[in-house]
């Protein structure tokens, strides 16, 4: 019970922001909260937020773990393009759905393995190591699709992008299930703690007997896997693999989601649920702007404002300042904390 309470306390800022954003949009656009059943699926703007946010939510899961190791993965957008292209190429050349999905996911994990080896074995700084695949990956994807949008009509693959399960769109089901599965994996075992230890001090963890190399590579493989799933969903959604545009700049949205989720880019403690909330906050803003009828330029400005706000709040100087200004306030808070 106590653990649940502290967990909710950790997520409180993100939940508050999300609710604030949703309320703000529904003030301007009252139909935002309306949900109705249509063709056996729930239909409404809130579902759109969950559905359109799927790629960023999936990327954010892997990105959270990578950032917790004090790394970063800039290649996820390009890996999405590669895996979408692989899936489209495989299904159009007549392979089965299972084979196609396995192949696409394997390619994603292979991309992650490449990043992991560069970072863990060759000790290249993550931002540079993953920049390689970020640049080259889109070229690889274009090679696979031969520069064109590779379209397919396989109902099974399309179902992943626009089908529904229990009234929810498939992408939503997938990211929710995957998010829960990875959270359980890292929190019901010692893995999460080991990742945090690795992120805070790799040398100390190595000396304590943690095989940090393997763990680091595994983190990047997970990120590649997440990107692969996101890539397949993005391709299935439009019934085609668009190597030029699939996942373009989404690595930045994923990093933003992790940061909005209150995770530090310096590694260490992390919360996947908070990153997922972060992804939904970003998507709610995007969808809200589309509904509002504002010009699209506002989208980027609002996103930038959020980054700035969070970076300012996270910066040590502001924390020092607020501690200095609010010394009496923080003492009160401390007393309250004790009283609890």
């Amino acid at each position: 019970m106590n653990a649940l309470k502290s967990h909710l306390l950790r997520l409180a800022p993100q939940i508050v922001v999300l609710i604030a954003v949703v309320l703000l949009i529904s003030l301007a656009f009252p139909d935002f909260l309306t949900l109705q059943m249509q063709n056996g699926r729930i239909y409404g703007s809130l579902i759109d937020v969950l559905n359109r946010g799927a790629p960023v939510a999936l990327l954010a899961i892997g990105m959270t773990i990578v950032i917790a190791t004090r790394g970063i993965d800039l290649s996820v957008g390009a890996v999405m393009a590669i895996c979408g292209a692989v899936a489209a190429a495989s299904i159009t050349s007549g392979h089965s759905l299972v084979y196609t999905l396995a192949l696409a996911l394997a390619v994603g994990m292979l991309c992650g393995l490449w990043n992991g080896i560069l970072v863990a074995v060759l000790d290249i700084q993550p931002i540079i190591a993953t920049l390689v695949l970020m640049v080259a990956g889109r070229g690889i994807a274009q090679l696979i699709t031969e520069g064109a949008i590779l379209t397919f009509n396989h109902p099974g693959l399309i179902f992943i992008g626009s089908g529904s399960f229990l009234g929810l769109p498939m992408p939503v089901v997938i990211w929710l299930a995957f998010g829960v599965a990875i959270t359980l994996l890292v929190r019901r075992t010692a893995l999460g703690m080991l990742v945090e230890a690795l992120g805070i001090n790799r040398r100390a963890s190595t000396l304590s007997g943690v095989s940090t190399g393997v763990l680091l590579i595994a983190a990047y493989i997970l990120s590649g896997l997440c990107a692969a799933i996101a890539g397949v969903i993005a391709a299935a959604d439009i019934k085609g693999a668009d190597a030029n545009n699939a996942g373009l700049w989404l690595e930045l949205d994923a990093i933003l989601a992790v940061v909005v989720g209150g995770n530090s880019l310096l590694g260490g403690r992390f919360s996947i649920a908070a990153s997922l909330l972060g992804a939904m906050i970003i998507q709610a803003i995007n969808t809200g702007i589309l509904l509002s009828g504002f010009p699209p330029e506002f989208n980027l400005i609002i996103k930038a404002a959020i980054i700035v706000l969070i970076l300012v709040v996270q910066s040590p100087r502001v924390r020092d300042l607020s501690a200095w200004f609010g010394r009496s306030g923080s003492r009160e808070a401390a007393v309250k904390q004790e009283a609890k």
């Binding site: 703007s45 759109d48 359109r52 993005a234 959604d237 668009d242 545009n245 589309l290 509904l291």
Partner: peptide
Amino acid sequence: RTKGKEVMES
């Protein structure tokens, strides 16, 4: 295509 679909939904 992706953005076309998303914007049309809205």
